[in-house]
Design a protein around this nucleic acid. Sequence first.
DNA 1: ATATTAGTCGACTATCTCAATCGACTAAGT
DNA 2: ACTTAGTCGATTGAGATAGTCGACTAATAT
Lengths: 146, 146
Amino acid sequence: MRLSTKGEYASRAMLELSVRYAEGALHIRDISAAQGIPERFLEQILLQLKRAGYLRSRKGPKGGYFLAKPPSRISVAEVIRVMDGPLAPIDCVSVTAHDPCPREPYCGLKGLWKEVRDAVAEILERTTFEDMAERSRVAKARSVTP
Amino acid sequence: MRLSTKGEYASRAMLELSVRYAEGALHIRDISAAQGIPERFLEQILLQLKRAGYLRSRKGPKGGYFLAKPPSRISVAEVIRVMDGPLAPIDCVSVTAHDPCPREPYCGLKGLWKEVRDAVAEILERTTFEDMAERSRVAKARSVTP
DNA sequence: ATATTAGTCGACTATCTCAATCGACTAAGT
DNA sequence: ACTTAGTCGATTGAGATAGTCGACTAATAT
Ligand code: FES
Ligand code: FES
């Protein structure tokens, strides 16, 4: 039930872009430095998020990446689905990539996997990057004035 | 957020052993056939579950595997932890294998991962193999008399 | 006793996924 | 034109996954 490094990096990058949404475009290098993500790896993550429609970019000097829509309209679930695929623990209970298993009629476990999927999806779908950015600002403020 | 095949097979095998708990020891071959799991692969899964204390076995004719304790006292969470490790999406929020990440103080995401971990753990910890066996019996009965 | 049955153990392998790296290219500013 | 910075495809190394295999050991039935 583990989140991939890619999924984690993508979330962190999106968070950085959300916290500094007002600044406009950020370079890969800045995001990489701020979040401690290998630059060359981050490059391909951002590209993937761009292709999926969550980011836009500008080339050349003063270029960089920025969110395609406000942080309040992007859920963490969407980003994780782009990087790691379906949230479901197994495919027979996936909403986005449903694929029935052979012995479904007798299977006592399906309901359980569905509960897990629904619980995870509910949390990640209701949480937007605006929420995360806000929590991040609060955490930072608290760490500055203890 | 995917469950490994090993985790899935282990759950299915434990379910089979729970549904037929009264029958005493079951051969690897029977469990394998009933649940459609490669025999030689199942062998090593059952051994792992035995080493972890959830199964016991008897050799020779009339031998086989059986639960070390009643199905009501084994949660799905325990079995998955044996096969796949911690339930947490990332280590900094794992209870069983906690490992702090470097930038914890500023991290806005930690709380979210913790919510996910807690939700998953709550479901899998409260669900026992007795519950699963019961659901399985109900499902079977329903499929016989529609 | 001994043949048969069935779990035990360690090692082995093929395939895949993950996490990353690289080089060459293209577009945007100055 | 020159520099900066994103784009794209390919490749790689390590490690995990999903299995297989052969030889061994213990229990039972005859
Ligand atoms: S796990 Fe898919 S139906 Fe049982
Ligand atoms: S993910 Fe561990 S502290 Fe942010």
